[in-house]
Computed example of a mutant assay.
Amino acid sequence: MRLHWLDRPAPYLPVWQAMQDFTESRQADTPDELWLVEHAPVYTLGQAGLESHILNPHGIPVVHCNRGGQVTYHGPGQVVLYTLVDLRRRGMFVRDFVALLEQSVLDVLADLGVPSACRKPGAPGIYVPQSALAQGRQGGALAKIAALGIKVRRGCAYHGVALNVGMDLSPFSGINPCGYAGLQTVDLQACGVRAGLTDVGDRLARHFSAAWETAGR
């Protein structure tokens, strides 16, 4: 599996177009690739996304893309792992691939001292309980730290997962994150973790690669 760090911060549209071009041109024996990137500020609205979930973009561009899911924000301080992989060749179902992506994030968070991170039934992505935040809030409410969305074309997946590392979280207030009104969005910094974006991205790619190599076999 080939790993590439893209130039940062990267505008969203050229990267999205490059993912589509790669997927359309790949052959049965084309090696899978992982792309790591930090995007310039952008809101992306999924294929079935509702405009009503964009509350106030404050001048941040909005891009309608072809991944699954609703609206999310990408920007500096967030690492995105794009997974350009052949599911059909691996013999993997989409639901299992989503679970693998989520587990890769959970493994990274456990490495970095956030073992309480979890999934939320019916809401793809990774969440942390209020009690895991550095300010020590109590309660059972969950805050989102990683969002995911994929597109499958001819048995091959692209798009991927975005993990908030240390970023300006205020743009999330301009949307209903992932279609959920009032959903709190946090980053590793809010969990008391000081980590470099490159280190977190490399960890995420390593965990995903290791799981991918053994999956579907």
Rank of each mutant, 00 (worst) to 15 (best):
V15H: 08
V15A: 13
V15D: 06
W16C: 12
W16D: 14
W16F: 13
Q17R: 15
Q17N: 12
A18D: 14
M19E: 15
M19P: 12
Q20T: 12
D21Y: 02
D21F: 02
F22N: 03
E24S: 07
E24I: 12
E24P: 00
S25C: 11
S25R: 15
S25Q: 15
R26L: 12
Q27P: 02
Q27S: 13
Q27M: 12
Q27G: 15
A28N: 09
A28H: 10
A28E: 15
A28Q: 14
T30R: 04
T30H: 04
T30D: 02
T30Y: 05
P31G: 10
P31L: 11
P31M: 08
D32V: 14
D32E: 08
E33L: 08
E33F: 04
W35N: 09
W35A: 04
W35M: 07
L36D: 04
L36V: 09
L36Y: 03
L36H: 08
V37E: 01
V37C: 03
H39R: 12
H39Y: 10
A40Y: 02
A40R: 09
P41K: 05
P41L: 09
P41D: 06
Y43N: 02
Y43V: 09
Y43A: 03
T44K: 01
T44R: 01
G46C: 05
G46K: 04
Q47E: 14
Q47I: 12
Q47P: 00
Q47D: 12
A48K: 01
G49I: 11
L50C: 06
L50H: 13
L50F: 01
L50R: 15
L50P: 00
E51C: 06
E51W: 11
E51Y: 05
E51I: 10
S52N: 09
S52W: 00
S52A: 15
H53E: 07
H53W: 04
H53F: 03
H53A: 04
I54D: 13
I54A: 02
L55Q: 13
L55M: 05
N56I: 08
N56G: 06
N56L: 07
N56Q: 15
N56H: 14
P57F: 02
P57G: 02
P57M: 01
H58V: 11
G59L: 06
I60Y: 00
P61Q: 05
P61I: 03
V62D: 07
V62K: 01
V62Y: 10
V62N: 04
V62S: 02
V63H: 13
V63T: 08
V63Q: 12
H64Q: 14
H64W: 14
N66F: 01
R67L: 09
R67M: 10
G68R: 08
G68I: 06
G69L: 09
G69F: 10
G69V: 08
G69N: 08
Q70M: 02
Q70E: 15
Q70K: 01
V71Q: 00
T72M: 11
T72D: 13
T72R: 07
T72C: 11
H74S: 07
H74V: 12
G75Y: 03
G75P: 03
G75A: 06
P76Y: 09
P76M: 11
P76K: 10
P76S: 11
